[in-house]
Design a protein around this nucleic acid. Structure first.
Lengths: 158, 158
DNA sequence: AAATAGTTGAGTAAAATACTCGGTTATAGG
DNA sequence: CCTATAACCGAGTATTTTACTCAACTATTT
């Protein structure tokens, strides 16, 4: 399990989806505006999330993405794994062929750590995140900002 | 705390140092041979490790690096932190200015995770690693391979 | 028919990673 | 003093990943 900003983007986007999916599917354009992630990048991330069946899509006007399952059945670990495709060739990542076809010195240490991180993130579901107070306050701020921006755009177009 | 192969290289090198520091300082050339890490890359890593006072250096013939402290006082977390210089601009890494000067949705989540990983790696000292059975077996294999290679070189030069 | 929004692919700039190269300085041993 | 060793230092570079742009196409709604 690799931990980069890519996985963080994916979790942030999925959480935004969870927070706004009450009134139908959520478009990537909305997520892009709220979370400050580029639309095209989101498209790439969601292509992977869809392939892993974490989200389902609705095409056409009013369309967007929906969570494929219950909030509490989707873990942060699943989301990170979906976009990380960590079967890469980085030494000590897959099988133990780190050094001349044998395990390297710290192979098992990193295996332990990986398991630890995975366990931590597997225990956190989107449902858990949605209930966090710090996330709710950020959500409120973002929703207000969005409303203000939308009004400003509306005003400037008169 | 970021977790990349860079930190893994550093921990592997420090562990090699720990395993071979009984008979005086260990040269980077030796570590490079045993662990398959390029010499110049090791130089860069050890420059940082020295700046963080995790190792001390001895110049000249027979010189090399020594651990600056006791085995059990050096944690894996310290080593990873020394080479990671993670005061980078990656969103949600330093202060909470992830999005328009405010914290982003998952800021606190990643803070929690970071603390978790840091705690895990802080509890593991080089002394702990040296005692691990899996590491001792890899060490034996590597030491033997090195001896064989050294003999082959000696033979080929006759 | 037109607008919306997902889907796909190719290409690209910036950053991080993992090096290489070419030197210098300090020091031990002859 | 000379020479070999090995740390030190800075610049440069190939590869990969990240994060993103652009352009087209398809499905669906109104």
């Amino acid at each position: 399990m690799r931990l980069t900003t890519k996985g963080r983007y994916a979790v942030t986007a999925m959480l935004d989806l969870a927070l706004h999916s009450e009134q139908g599917p959520v478009s990537l354009a909305d997520i892009s505006n709220r979370q400050g992630i580029s639309l095209s990048y989101l498209e790439q991330l969601f292509a992977k999330l869809r392939r892993q069946q974490l989200v389902s899509s609705v095409r056409g006007p009013g369309g967007g993405y929906r969570l494929a399952g219950e909030l509490k059945t989707i873990s942060v670990a699943q989301v990170v794994d979906a976009v990380s495709e960590s079967l890469d060739a980085t030494r000590c990542e897959g099988k133990g062929d780190c050094q001349h076809g044998e395990v390297c010195l710290t192979h098992h240490l990193w295996e332990d750590l990986s398991a630890q991180i995975h366990r931590f993130l597997s225990d956190i579901s989107l449902a858990d995140l949605v209930q966090r107070r710090d996330i709710q306050s950020v959500r409120d701020r973002q929703d207000n900002q969005q409303r203000i921006t939308a009004e400003q755009i509306a005003c400037s177009q008169i």
